[in-house]
Amino acid sequence: MPDTRSTSVPGTVRARALPAGPGPTARLILLLLLAAVLVGLATAVLSLPPVAPGLGAVVTEHLPASGVEHPVTAVLLNFRGYDTLLELAVLWLALLAVWSLTPAPLAHEPTANPMLAALNQLLAPLMILVAGYLLWNGGHAPGGAFQAGAVLGATGVLLHLSGRRLPRAVDGWPLRLALLLGVALFSLIGLAVMAGGAPFLTYPPASAGGLILAIEAAATLSIAATLAALFLGGRP
């Protein structure tokens, strides 16, 4: 699709030199300012007591009710799940913004290298397996949706680089649905529990584990799709 919005066609714009940086006086003032910032922040950091309890004890105390065994996952998906929801929204928003900026994907020359294609055929299933393992692992050990999504997204990027493209059938709304599945499912589950009079995002303790796994699975898919699509830079 031709870019109809830029006032000048890329390629016809004359390349221009970079502007000069700040002069020596400005640099000196900047250095003095930054030295003050450095001293101030270092003093503040050193003034903190060497031992602080933080919220670790509170998290440990409520961990059995969270539906998962790993404290970081419990904080991310349950205690402070609202943060994670908004963070998925940020990721989706970045993609929205990138699509609004570039109607056409950035040019990536497909590498018609048979070795690369063969290697990818070996790697892709393995990486999908690793992503699945990371997702499952998140419940009780380091891992989880973001790590799994990053690996899955990288798989997508590798496949794209070796010349594979999405089939036309899933290029439209199925792709858009995949991109926002994570934040959508998270929001809808959060709102659904309000029907019983509970506050937003209050999982019933019995089904917390299952709900978190469902949210994480959807988030993994969305994160992978978003990261790969961000790499492509435009509507594929």
Binding site: P53, G54, A57, A74, V75
Partner: peptide, 14 residues
């Protein structure tokens, strides 16, 4: 800086 062995999970999540 926690007294226990494990680090505070909340900053990790943040």
């Amino acid at each position: 800086r926690t007294p226990a062995a494990a680090a505070d999970p909340v900053p990790q999540a943040m």
